[in-house]
Design a protein around this nucleic acid. Structure first.
Lengths: 215, 215
DNA sequence: GCCTGTGAATCCATTCACAGCT
DNA sequence: AGCTGTGAATGGATTCACAGGC
């Protein structure tokens, strides 16, 4: 049943997590893995693994388990990672540079094909990957000709919303926002926000909680 | 009722989100805000805001709303952000550098007080913030004398687990992991994982889904 | 016997709707 | 009158437990 049923959002996220250990098992491990095996590798329950996968089809063999290679392929197909996804980045500071050089992006087909920065000093510079930094005013033209699908925002917060509008205007289909504000998008364009400080605040809360209960 | 009740994890995350617009309102906006006002600023339901806050006390005034300054203070107290939290970082590449220079961390009291890297070339170098990069072998000694509470992992994946063990051994209370593997910790030490590619895979799934249903 | 796939049961979080305070 | 605080109702997601197939 590959019917477009309602898939829980957490399921999608977990599929990505499942794929990590599967990639390692591919060369070094056994060719088959049980839901229990994969579950412990990812820190979830076995039943969760089975239910998640069952939303998309019957990938396993009863009494045996899941074929690692096939399963990985299926997951990649579901997540649409079995193809090249062109990205652009706006804001080539330290964070931007680390994203551009990130091996995991490349390995999974997420390729930066354009880089923009509002700093005239940086414009024209050539990056290690061969890209040349262009001014933000070129966002629309470049994204359209290069058919950029996802725009990554790595700018300071005060320009993030403006950059976001430019990207939407340029026709990107998704936004990955690293600035600490919530950017607004249209209904068709999904935005994912990555706010590091939220994670730190979570940690701070929990370790303080332990202190409070402990003494 | 500031009783240590069971607080839902999503509530903690949202508290951090609430604090962002409150900080801006502090100087520029009105001194009081309703649950509805805050809700629309954060993209959640008004009832959600009220319930989240009510877990920790009665901060509002019926018929009026919440005092912006007081509410922000309370949230900071709850999240234990009203204090200085010493961090260390392991892995001073592009990502590590961008984290160290991140203004939002500093602004919220998260201060890097030690930096480690396994690359001998980098060891001894002085960073813009004044820190000197030390070898990973010094993690335990330095973290203990500087009372580091949270360790940030910004290394390549294959060393992440080893670094994590060192940090645990050095007595950190929390781990913020930027490498794409799930690090294992002890029960008392919470780990937060930030995996950028998971976010991209989410986006890829959704935009592909739209394609599939559209044509 | 073993492990998947899945309805049923449980658990958890969100939303509703209104009582209670100012 | 207006808006918070909160039990009750709803809606989702996880877990259980077992039927079904290797």
């Amino acid at each position: 049943m590959s019917k477009a049923a309602k898939i829980p959002a957490p399921t999608i996220k977990r599929l990505a997590y499942y794929s990590r250990p599967l990639e390692e098992l591919l060369d070094s491990g056994p060719p088959v893995i049980s839901s229990e095996g994969l579950a412990t590798l990812c820190g979830v329950q076995p039943a969760q693994v089975r239910k998640d996968l069952a939303y998309f089809g019957e990938f396993g063999v009863r009494g045996v388990g899941y074929n690692v290679r096939e399963l990985l392929q299926e997951i990649k197909r579901i997540l649409a990672t079995d193809r090249r996804v062109p990205l652009c980045i706006v804001g080539v500071g330290n964070l931007g540079t680390s994203l551009i050089e990130n091996e995991n992006f490349k390995k999974r087909g997420y390729i930066f094909e354009a880089a923009f920065d509002s700093d005239p000093e940086k414009q024209g510079q050539k990056l290690s990957c061969g890209l040349i930094i262009e001014p933000n005013s070129r966002i629309k033209a470049v994204c359209q000709t290069k058919k950029i699908e996802i725009g990554v925002i790595a700018t300071p917060p005060h320009v993030a919303q403006r950059v976001c509008r430019r990207l939407l205007n340029a026709g990107v289909r998704g936004i990955l926002n690293f600035s600490p504000i919530q950017v607004r998008t249209t209904a068709e364009v999904q935005a994912e926000n990555v706010d590091f400080t939220v994670k730190l605040e979570n940690l701070a809360y929990h370790l303080h909680r332990l202190d409070a209960s402990g003494e």
